[in-house]
């Protein structure tokens, strides 16, 4: 264990509270040092990301669901693309959804801003890989 350990800031945007709970618990069980901020829809997440008060608390990774009320995943991603450069931070964006529809998967694959499309239920091994890499990068940056 490094002395100055820095948490990976995770942003979960999903109206499914059970999923959000499960994700937090999983990361905890797997022993990752993370800090999670969660939102029930895209609009709340955009409000947070554009609020100057939170400029030092921007996430390293965003996990975003598609079907949500008020502002859905696609709309969030569109808004996020516009503000991405202003945040001044490299943020990995993953889509997490229960939609196995080829149209949704294709749409995500064709968007360069989206790192990957994760179908629910999440593959725990793949998720562990992603977080291991993130934590490593984060640690290297702060060292």
């Amino acid at each position: 264990m490094s002395v100055a350990k820095v948490p990976v800031i995770v942003c979960v945007i999903d109206d499914d509270h059970i999923f959000t709970y499960g994700l937090k618990k999983l990361l905890e069980i797997k022993g990752f040092y993370t800090k999670t901020i969660d939102f029930g829809n895209g609009k709340d997440a955009i409000d947070y990301l554009t609020n100057p008060d939170y400029v030092n608390n921007l996430p390293d990774i965003i996990l975003c669901d598609i079907n949500m009320p008020v502002m859905d995943g696609w709309e969030f991603i569109q808004n996020f693309e516009e503000i991405k450069s202003q945040t001044g931070k490299k943020i990995a964006l993953y889509v997490i959804s229960s939609s196995a529809d080829a149209v949704d998967i294709e749409r995500a694959k064709n968007n360069p801003h989206i790192t990957d499309y994760l179908l629910k239920p999440l593959d725990e091994n793949y998720l562990t890989e992603i977080f291991k890499l993130l934590q490593h990068t984060k640690q290297a940056q702060s060292a």
């Binding site: 499960g22 999983l26 229960s98 939609s99 999440l122």
Partner: peptide
């Protein structure tokens, strides 16, 4: 989507 969502959550919770 919805059946998958419930089934996925169930699997997730059982694993946890």
């Amino acid at each position: 989507h919805n059946l998958r969502s419930h089934a996925g959550n169930l699997k997730f919770m059982v694993n946890l």
